[in-house]
Design a protein around this nucleic acid. Structure first.
Lengths: 115, 115
DNA sequence: CTGAACTACAACCATACGGTTGTACGTTAC
DNA sequence: GTAACGTACAACCGTATGGTTGTAGTTCAG
């Protein structure tokens, strides 16, 4: 089977983390440069705690890492998680291509294929 | 800029739709073959209405289409939506590569680059 | 040492989500 | 025409989500 062998709930967390504009913006920022949590919070019109929660969601989804440096916490983006998400979508496209191939097969053979 | 020009809430819907294992399974099925809604519902240990809701979420995210045929509704996967999601993630990787390039620049030049 | 800065976390609120059951309506079959 | 099928949708429930404020613990500066 072509089904990916990553934990389903892990994938859930990945896409769920990406399903918020603020979080996607955070990801694109921390992929470019390092930010402290408060440095990120300054960028958005919401409370510090709200941004803190967003970062926590991203961390649980492995999209960012936090590293304590003195009294501040450095946030960095993890491109490998992004790549994994992209690869999952690649698989869907691959499945779809097989469908196209199968249509070709059906046209070539008899139409007696059901399951 | 490399920033994609798709509505943010549209992207929200896309990733949010993908953030559920049942919905991802539906997508992979309807990318391979056509299903009726009740045909899909048979595949899962949940009520028909629950599956119906999942399909509605996928439809709102443009990941599937529904086409009425007689008394049944045919569900098909839209690979273009999958591709768009994949392309969004591609951009994140691209941003990340630019960061790598920038690090190279900093090493080559003087370290007087801040913003 | 004291105060300010950075973070963590709990409590709370409104809303959305995933699931259920029940009802209603168009379509097919007999 | 009637019964069964496929679908749509509303109402409801428990829980998760995204936001807030408030409190408390570390760490840095003076």
């Amino acid at each position: 089977m072509v089904v990916v062998q990553v934990g389903e709930d892990e994938v859930d967390r990945l896409f769920q983390a990406l399903a918020d504009a603020t979080r996607r913006d955070i990801v694109s920022r921390v992929l470019v440069a390092e930010y402290t949590v408060s440095g990120l919070a300054e960028q958005y019109a919401m409370s510090f705690a709200a941004v803190q929660k967003h970062v926590a969601v991203l961390e649980r989804a492995s999209l960012v890492t936090k590293e304590k440096r003195g009294r501040e916490q450095i946030v960095r983006g993890r491109v490998d998680a992004v790549q994994r998400a992209r690869r999952l979508l690649d698989e869907y496209e691959h499945i779809w291509r097989q469908r196209i191939d199968r249509i070709g097969d059906l046209l070539a053979e008899d139409a007696s294929d059901q399951d």
